[in-house]
Nucleic acid binder design. Structure first.
Length: 251
DNA sequence: AACGTACCCTGCCGGC
DNA sequence: TGCCGGCAGGGTACGT
């Protein structure tokens, strides 16, 4: 499940292969992806990321906005099945996405601005903080995954960051103390940065402390990890380290 | 407005 | 061994 780190790595790889190149041909075998043929001849100026979106900036100020969905990623040699091929003068990028939840669309600069304006702050940008989460009473994990509140955090890194910060996923966001929010902010930045540091190997070297480890021992206290469903999504946590009724961890 | 839920889609897992 | 139902899980659209 691509979240901020995976999307960041994907964007960097795309940049390495496509930046400065001119589009030669676009192929969209998937009937849910539509890109105009006239993109051929257009030069790719820059590739950026905002939240979980990849932004391919074209020379003519149009942008290809890409969301990887759950199973999307790019490869640079033709795979057996792909939803989009972007051929450039020196190479090509192929969009693989078995579950087809990914989205690709061409937008104007103004449309991009409008779409991405609704995203919350970037966790890795300077000045990032979680003070605004005090304005919602939703469970903290649900709030963290709301892209309007924090951009780029999804199910796995939300669980990982909450474990690291000793905070129960169900705690109402508006009842977190200042030091808890501070701890959580640091934990988010830590888990995201660490994942990005893995680089393209991320899918092979991913090591989770709680995510998908139900029943296995907590890395800190050996208590079996538990799973609960929040906002229709799995939350993994250590019932010992992340008490619902106790704000602060024992240090 | 804010929150909960169904849906999209397909690979994979467990049960029989 | 093989089949099959159900689940996971991003975002979004919709109902309350």
């Amino acid at each position: 499940m691509p979240e901020l780190p995976e999307v960041e790595i994907c964007a960097r790889e795309l940049s390495a292969h496509l930046r400065g190149q001119t589009i030669r041909r676009i192929e969209t075998p998937d009937n849910k992806i539509h890109l105009p043929r006239d993109l051929a001849g257009c030069r790719i100026k820059e590739i950026d990321r905002r939240g979980k979106f990849i932004i391919v900036q074209l020379e003519d100020e149009r942008r290809i906005l890409i969301h990887l969905g759950m199973t999307g990623w790019f490869v640079f040699r033709p795979p057996s099945k792909y939803r989009l091929a972007l051929e450039v003068n020196d190479g090509a990028a192929y969009f693989e996405d078995p579950r087809r939840f990914g989205k690709v669309r061409l937008v104007s600069a103004a449309q991009q601005e409008q779409l991405l304006a609704e995203l919350g702050p970037e966790p890795l940008a300077p000045g990032f903080n979680l003070r605004h989460l005090k304005r919602t009473g939703r469970p903290i994990k649900v709030a963290l995954q709301d892209q309007h509140l924090v951009a780029g955090v999804g199910n796995m890194y939300a669980s990982e960051a909450l474990w690291r910060a000793h905070i129960h996923p169900k705690r109402p966001a508006d009842r977190l103390a200042d030091d808890e929010l501070r701890r959580l902010r640091k934990s988010i930045v830590y888990v995201l940065r660490k994942a990005i540091a893995y680089g393209p190997q991320i899918y092979e070297v991913q090591r989770f402390t709680v995510y998908r480890r139900k029943g296995e021992p907590c890395h800190r206290c050996q208590t079996p990890i538990e799973r609960l469903v929040l906002g229709g999504r799995s939350a993994y946590f250590c019932p010992q380290c992340q008490r619902f009724d106790r704000g602060s961890p024992r240090t």
